[in-house]
C-alpha cells in the first residue's frame, strides 16, 4: 500500500494548527486513494506529542529528534525529509505552505527531481488522480493543476483546510537520523514583540486616521496592533499633526504596503492613502461616517465610534487568541 507523507511543523514546540489541517487532508486523500498516512515530526523533543497526530488521521508518525533540529535549518530538515521519503516511499508528500514549508518543499522536490504544487487552496481526488487548486495573480485567477510525477509534492495553504479529528491511533516510530550537515548557521532568533514592526514588513497593519484625534488616543490603536502582532500605520494627516512618526505613514508619499489584513480606524481613505495600501488582501474600516468612501471600498466595515469599536475588537481578538 503506498503512503502519503506529511511534513508537519511545530511552533514553540507545539504543533501548528496547520499541521493538524494537513494531516486531516492527508487522511481524506488516503481514504479515497486507499493509502496510508505517515506524519513526519522534526524537532528536538517531539516524541511525547507525536501520537496526537493520530487523532487527525495519521497511521504512523515518524519522529526525527536531535538538538540540531530544534529550529528550522533547511539543510538539516531537507536531509531528514529525504530520509523519510526513502523509508516510506510515498506517492504524495504534503507540506504546509508556511514560510518554513515553502522554503523546505522546493528543496525536497528538486532533490527528488520532481514537480511541486505549492500553496494549494483546494485538493480533490478526481478519477483517481489529484486535482489541485492554486491561486494565480494574487487570487485574480484560480488554476486547477495536475501533477504527473511519481512522487507528488504539494504544500497546502494554512487556514484553508479543515482540521478534522477522527480518533485514530498512530504508531510512533523514530526515524534513524542520517548525518546532518549544513552550510548555514543560525546566529540568532528574535521573536517579535520587543521590536516595533515595520509597516512594510508587517502582515497585519492597524492604521489610525485623523478620527483618532490625538497622539494619546493612539493607545487603543497600539493595543489592537499588539494583540494582532500587527504594525501601527498612520495617515498623512496624523503624521503631519505629529501624533505618529513619519516611518509609520502609509500612502502615496509614505510607505506602500500590501499586508493580508489592513484595518483602518477613523480614516476616510483618500486616494493618496489608498494608493499606498490598495494591495492589501483584506481591508477593514471602522468609521463613524456611513458615507465615507472607505466604507464602500473596504471588504468589511463597521460604522461606529472607533473609541468603542476598537477596544471591543481588541477584547474579541484576545478572546480567540486565548
Amino acid at each position: 500500500m503506498s503512503a502519503i507523507l506529511v511534513v508537519t511543523e511545530l511552533q514553540n514546540n507545539e504543533f501548528k494548527k496547520s499541521s493538524f489541517e494537513t494531516v486531516s487532508q492527508a487522511r481524506r486523500l488516503a481514504d479515497s486513494l486507499g493509502q496510508t498516512v505517515t506524519a513526519l515530526v522534526i524537532g528536538s523533543d517531539v516524541k511525547a506529542k507525536a501520537a496526537s497526530l493520530g487523532e487527525y488521521g495519521a497511521d504512523q508518525v515518524l519522529t526525527a529528534e536531535d538538538t540540531k533540529l530544534e529550529n528550522f535549518n533547511p539543510d538539516y530538515y531537507k536531509t531528514i525529509v529525504i530520509e523519510a521519503v526513502k523509508k516510506v516511499s510515498p506517492e504524495i508528500v504534503l507540506f504546509i505552505a508556511t514560510l518554513q514549508g515553502r522554503d523546505l518543499a522546493p528543496r525536497v522536490a528538486a532533490a527528488l527531481e520532481t514537480g511541486l504544487a505549492s500553496d494549494c487552496t483546494g485538493l480533490e481526488v478526481v478519477d483517481g488522480s489529484l486535482e489541485i487548486e492554486h491561486p494565480l495573480y494574487a487570487g485574480k485567477v484560480f488554476a486547477k493543476l495536475s501533477l504527473e510525477s511519481p512522487v507528488k509534492i504539494l504544500s497546502l495553504r494554512p487556514g484553508v483546510f479543515e482540521a478534522k479529528m477522527n480518533g485514530k491511533q498512530a504508531v510512533v516510530n523514530s526515524l534513524e537520523l542520517p548525518a546532518l550537515e549544513s552550510r548555514i548557521k543560525i546566529k540568532e532568533i528574535n521573536k517579535t514583540g520587543g521590536d516595533k514592526l515595520d509597516v512594510t514588513e508587517a502582515d497585519i497593519i492597524v492604521t489610525g486616521g485623523r478620527g483618532v484625534r490625538s497622539a494619546e488616543n493612539f493607545k487603543i490603536i497600539e493595543e489592537l496592533a499588539t494583540v494582532l502582532n500587527a504594525a501601527v500605520g498612520a495617515t498623512r494627516a496624523v503624521v503631519d499633526s505629529e501624533w505618529r512618526p513619519h516611518d509609520e505613514q502609509v500612502g502615496q508619499t509614505g510607505k506602500v504596503v500590501s499586508p493580508s489584513l489592513y484595518i483602518m480606524c477613523g480614516a476616510s481613505g483618500s486616494i493618496q492613502h489608498w494608493a499606498g495600501m490598495s494591495g492589501s488582501k483584506c481591508i477593514v474600516a471602522v468609521n463613524k461616517d456611513p458615507e465615507a468612501p472607505i466604507i464602500k471600498r473596504a471588504d468589511y466595515s463597521i460604522v461606529g465610534d472607533l473609541f468603542e469599536v476598537v477596544p471591543a475588537l481588541t477584547q474579541e481578538i484576545k478572546k480567540i487568541k486565548g
Binding site: 514537480g115 487570487g139 485567477v141 484560480f142 486547477k144 471600498r297 471588504d299 461606529g304
Partner: peptide, 23 residues
C-alpha cells in the same frame, strides 16, 4: 510534471460589506 488543466475566476469579491454598527 505540473500543468494547468483549467483556469477560472474566483467568486466575485463582494462589494464592501457593512458588518454592522458600533461595538
Amino acid at each position: 510534471n505540473l500543468s494547468i488543466n483549467k483556469l477560472s475566476y474566483p467568486a466575485a469579491r463582494s462589494e464592501g460589506k457593512v458588518v454592522g454598527e458600533g461595538a
